[in-house]
Design a binder for these strands. Structure first.
Lengths: 344, 344
DNA sequence: TAGCGTGCCGAAAGGCCTTTCGGAAGGTTT
DNA sequence: AAACCTTCCGAAAGGCCTTTCGGCACGCTA
């Protein structure tokens, strides 16, 4: 266990002051770069601090400042597929080392969530980011909290909260527009659980883009589960009914993987005969398929950055005003790979 | 932004004391369940606290106790594939709400790691768990830290540190033993980057188990990259040279997915003709393949729990002794699915 | 030489809580 | 009635730091 014998008790500021032969106040000022300290004195203090390997106790600082420089990330995203990029974006935005993040996983349990929420408030976090694992609205934490809250990925069901979530409608549009640009006109849509807002929103975008182009969807939107199995089954049925389909928009990369499997089994070439586009841009799935999968990326890291910036703004302004209430739909991004455009 | 107007300043203990008509000390004792307080008085204080929605400032408490009840999780695991289960295990072990975890991602950058380390120490975490993304030893943080450190997944290169890591050799053995139990005798091994200790260790286990059974590996161990592409290519070459192979141990689930693809293309039935076993038990890959993939699970959540418990022990004992220094190899687990055993 | 400004330092308060210890009030024993 | 104990409460110190503000010493001007 790494615990130095000598470091049993961390050096405190008064240790430094004594070592440097100055008062507590002067030591503090020297270390924090305040003026009112002669250069020579400052030098002396700094050297003493160095020798004692003094690190200022952030607890005491926070107590005085009334601010801890910490943020709570409250999630129910078990797998961490969404929460990790969001966390990284948040870290970026805050600036490494300036702000630290408490990560709490409520595991989809409201009681545990309350528990964690209370713990975070006791620790006097400056703000809270709530990350859901679906884009369906989730219950608000309420407005009687002493710190700002931003909802990421899953928006709050209260429109006076601040929420940031990917623009799934735009994602659906983007997918179709890309297929159209590739010259496809007979386009189908296979997606996941119809209970998910993500599935519905993407389908809306798909239909809208087709309507704009004066086209209709080939067959109905096929909803079921977010799995490869469904991708395989659905595409088999689709091809049986509509052998002339030349483009398939999938509601997730998993579904797209299944679709690719079936097309391959049926002897269809991708992208020559049928172009396939996925959703989520989950690297491990998208870059390992045959061919590699074009996909829609939700820019989760950017989402995290945005959430962090919103928190930041809210922390800065002490008037308690509520800037940017409402659900903000963030743009998504197309990542083109071999499943829609043959490689040269 | 959720910020109640009335909650501009959180209630402090002296507010409660005043409201209840008692002194600071009494209020403190009442709230913390100390004796030396008359039941009636306690009741009065509790009610006042309730009404003011008082939450004790954990900062001040920590300052006094010399303990914060927080732990730092320092990772370089970008994708979070390993860190999330470990984090969850740690949360479990600490007991939700008792201890909170600061998650810091160093992104494989030593400077950033130092930065985060310093921030964690300033915040006076009680301990640090370091999570790597490979099982190769990583540089120690050193022994001159004022808090205990446990290395998880990636062990420290210093044997006097405490490390917990999955037993990859046992995993390799387990895979082969399972194939043997399934009646396979012509077993090959396709795995990832030979620079990874994980690849080497698993290969050692594979060879050892075969040797114990008086068998030899079919062909050499095939090292390359941890990708589906490699799984596809390697198995194609393997089958060309050794058409009689009847079992393939893969170094990862990704590789196994590629292997399954190729076997399917070649008209081999899995598991009837060839049994395939993966590694990592990455649900999204293992349960979506055709057939579903038998795999070795590293019990990461258990790993996290163990790491947390070690930290706990070290925190408890104030004598600075170093219990359990060294690298602890934790048992892994076989998850049987359709790729080795035909479903009934 | 008296008066004034400037530059630097230190005493002390304050942030929020816990704990120790002294002491008041009430009841019990001799 | 005196001595004692128990029960409960409160003053104060302490944990570590920052900030305010008063004051000392020095050098300058009149």
């Amino acid at each position: 266990m790494a615990r130095a014998d000598g470091a049993a008790r961390a050096a405190t500021l008064s240790d430094v002051a004594r070592a440097a032969g100055v008062s507590l106040a002067t030591a503090s000022k020297a270390i924090n770069g305040r003026d009112q300290v002669a250069p020579a004195t400052r030098e002396r203090v700094m050297r003493a601090a160095e020798e004692l390997s003094f690190t200022p106790n952030q607890l005491a600082r926070s107590l005085i400042a009334g601010r801890t420089g910490t943020v709570g990330l409250l999630t129910s995203d078990l797998e961490g597929r969404f929460v990790i990029p969001i966390l990284m974006g948040a870290e970026d935005a805050f600036g490494a080392g300036q702000v630290n993040v408490f990560l709490c996983d409520a595991r989809g349990d409201a009681i545990r969530e309350q528990h964690h929420l209370k713990a975070l408030l006791n620790r006097r976090v400056d703000g809270i980011i709530v990350v859901g694992r679906q884009t369906d609205p989730r219950p608000s934490l309420g407005h009687d909290l002493p710190v700002p809250v931003v909802y990421a990925y899953a928006p709050s069901d209260d429109p006076t909260d601040v929420s940031v979530t990917p623009d799934n409608v735009a994602g659906g549009r983007l997918a179709v527009e890309h297929l159209l640009a590739c010259g496809r006109t007979r386009i189908a849509h296979i997606t996941g659980d119809p209970e998910y807002a993500a599935a519905q929103d993407r389908a809306i975008g798909v239909r809208a883009a087709l309507a704009d182009a004066g086209l209709e969807l080939v067959g109905d939107v096929r909803f079921s589960t977010w799995s490869e199995h469904w991708g395989r089954d659905a595409s088999a049925m689709l091809l049986a009914q509509h052998p002339d389909v030349d483009g398939i928009v999938c509601g997730s990369d998993q579904i797209a993987r299944g679709v690719l499997d079936t097309l391959r089994d049926l002897g269809k070439r991708v992208p020559e005969d049928v172009a396939v586009i996925g959703y989520d841009n989950w690297e491990v799935l998208a870059t390992n398929s045959r061919p590699e999968l074009t996909s829609i990326d939700a820019n989760l890291q950017q989402l995290g950055r945005t959430a962090a910036m919103r928190i930041f703004e809210a922390i800065e302004r002490t008037d308690g005003a509520e800037p940017g209430a409402g659900v903000h739909h963030l743009p998504v991004r197309l990542v083109i790979r071999g499943s829609t455009v043959a490689r040269r």
